[in-house]
Design a binder for these strands. Structure first.
Lengths: 337, 337
DNA sequence: ATCCTGTTTTAGATCGATCTAAATTGAGGT
DNA sequence: ACCTCAATTTAGATCGATCTAAAACAGGAT
């Protein structure tokens, strides 16, 4: 019942032409005569021929496969990113090899080896926490085109797709200042990544520009529960901030739950602002003010950068930076308690 | 600076043995003498040899690649599923080709062809809405092992990994009945999938078993906003239900927002219960009672079923069904207005 | 020395598509 | 009839690893 695989050679035999000719037809070469092309295409359709891309790659070195490595598949930030990248790759008839580094650098190394063995044409990498700064260089020496995204190591070493985190944090801080907040705290994460540094830098800069006071930087584990537990530490800060800006929406949501548990109503007693504007920002109570980083657009950019790099390996290094948008909802209200 | 690829032949030349021997070393065959193995392995390590899996597949027909097709990459239900599957595949040193069908059957067909061309060893498919019932058969005729998951067409046609949706809905209904609700509505989706049918069937069955009254079945578009708009229609139902069970958490969250907008407080005035227990269930206000379907566990099961099928193509068809768990929070409170 | 046996190693073909360089075809010009 | 030139087609090698079937080798036993 299971038919044996239909190959180029078989099509050629039936059509009475050589394998080379059929190969030209498959690749839409203008070299074949129109009537030959039609006959061969008819036969391919009849026999349900599927071109073996692996075999093709062996010869011409293009697998139409790209690897994508993300540090997390639960956080919507990364899955929207992935979704954007997959979408654009599909348009180009490329296929995505997916792997989750779980933010673990050794695991990430393994994955890269695996991808290498599978002959990917290029890699989109969101580097795990603790990735060695020379990783981009090592990858380059393998002859593997690389685009970093969302995070990066070795700044300017490779093409990069991201959002302007610094500006995004600036939007949030200015919004809070306009609402009359003077002392703003930042709920950060412990994991050291470029995304964290940029957000912290944006925070410091925006404080300087607006003249608002640094309400303190508190670190939480990157999880809903971690942020919830951090509420206590924030309320115990020597000089109580009236607003708290959070590293991302997940932390902001957890913090809001924690504050409420401690009898403090976010959006009324304390302002809370998130970053990323994930769908969950609309679901929290009260709905969360956040800054949209548009991860799907970043993913799409990353895919386009990689496509460009594959087309021209010697093109100059390029950065595609998405501008963030402030989404005002209700969690950034006043400060009464 | 870019070194040429290191091949088996090169290792063989340097080690002074044949390609065949090196190949045996690569595959950990017991046929090679210990000292040869060590010498060869040393050289492979020194030269940073990476085995070309594509070339290997061409000969022995195993690419250690499996395709996963999901209908959506934004809904956490599917990304958790994906995460579970990717995880287990990685343990087995397999790699995941990911694609998003966007719940579109023709697109899904294209993807399958693409996967076929890439020589995947097998496919985990969550069939798109409107998938032809004979698709599993067609895929079988291609000689491509298939596991369906989360949804299925042509029941019992293939291995299947899922959750017991019928039982899950039963848990929710019984919980509501225990809380004193007698008239329960169901907020469903328009997209026709086996998951929808099962949940509806579970609803009908649970009503029959508990003697509760069918409060009506309302359909919404599968999105947060769609559910929000449906609140009006539910409140306009001829006989107002005291509780609404929703097809999934996304709908339940939207419905809760819509109800609140209409001046009805979920969890106090009307009970709302979701299905799936996504992380967002903890973030809604009030926190949502839901039934955990454990998509990550389902994904892991799907991967294991496929691994089993690859090991033994003639094994009998098997189903792996996860038992759902009721998570009681606050949205399933009383009915006062 | 010779034969046997079990252990290691290997030459050469193979998977399916593509590349190179060359052959074939056919039309038009002389 | 012969030559040119462009348009088509093709034989054969090639990519890198694995398979098959057979060869080489070592260590006893005779």
């Amino acid at each position: 019942m299971i038919r044996k695989k239909v190959t180029l050679a078989e099509i050629a035999r039936i059509a009475g032409v050589s394998r080379a000719t059929v190969s030209l037809v498959v690749r839409n070469s203008p070299l074949v005569a129109e009537h030959t092309r039609q006959r061969v295409e008819q036969i391919m359709a009849d026999l349900d021929y599927v071109r073996d891309i692996g075999a093709a790659r062996l010869r011409n070195n293009s697998s139409r496969t790209i690897g994508v490595i993300v540090p997390n598949l639960v956080n919507a930030f990364f899955t929207e990113f992935l979704s954007g990248a997959e979408e654009v790759m599909g348009l180009d008839d490329r296929v995505v090899l997916l792997a989750n580094s779980r933010d673990d650098a050794p695991r990430q190394d393994q994955i890269l080896q695996r991808f290498r063995g599978h002959g990917v044409d290029g890699v989109i990498l969101c580097p795990a926490q603790g990735t060695a700064a020379d990783l981009p260089d090592r990858i380059r020496r393998w002859g593997l085109p690389l685009v970093q995204s969302l995070r990066e190591v070795g700044r300017d070493a490779t093409d990069y797709a991201g959002a302007d985190y610094v500006a995004g944090v600036g939007l949030a801080v200015r919004h809070l200042v306009e609402r009359g907040h003077r002392r703003i705290a930042f709920l950060s994460v412990s994991a050291r990544t470029s995304a964290r540094e940029e957000r912290l830098e944006g925070f410091a800069r925006a404080l300087a520009e607006t003249g608002a006071e640094d309400g303190g930087i508190v670190e939480a584990e990157l999880s809903w529960e971690g942020a919830m537990r951090s509420a206590r530490r924030i309320l115990d800060l020597p000089a109580l901030p009236t607003a708290i800006l959070c590293f991302n929406d997940v932390l902001a949501a957890g913090l809001m739950a924690g504050l409420r548990q401690a009898g403090c109503q976010p959006g009324r007693d304390r302002a809370v602002v998130g970053l990323d504007d994930l769908p969950l920002a609309e679901l929290t109570y009260p709905p969360m003010t956040s800054v949209a980083m548009q991860p799907a657009a970043i993913g799409a950019n990353a895919a386009r950068l990689l496509a460009r790099r594959l087309a021209d390996p010697d093109a100059p290094v390029k950065r595609a930076i998405v501008q963030p948008l402030l989404r005002i909802r209700e969690s950034s209200g006043g400060a009464r308690c």
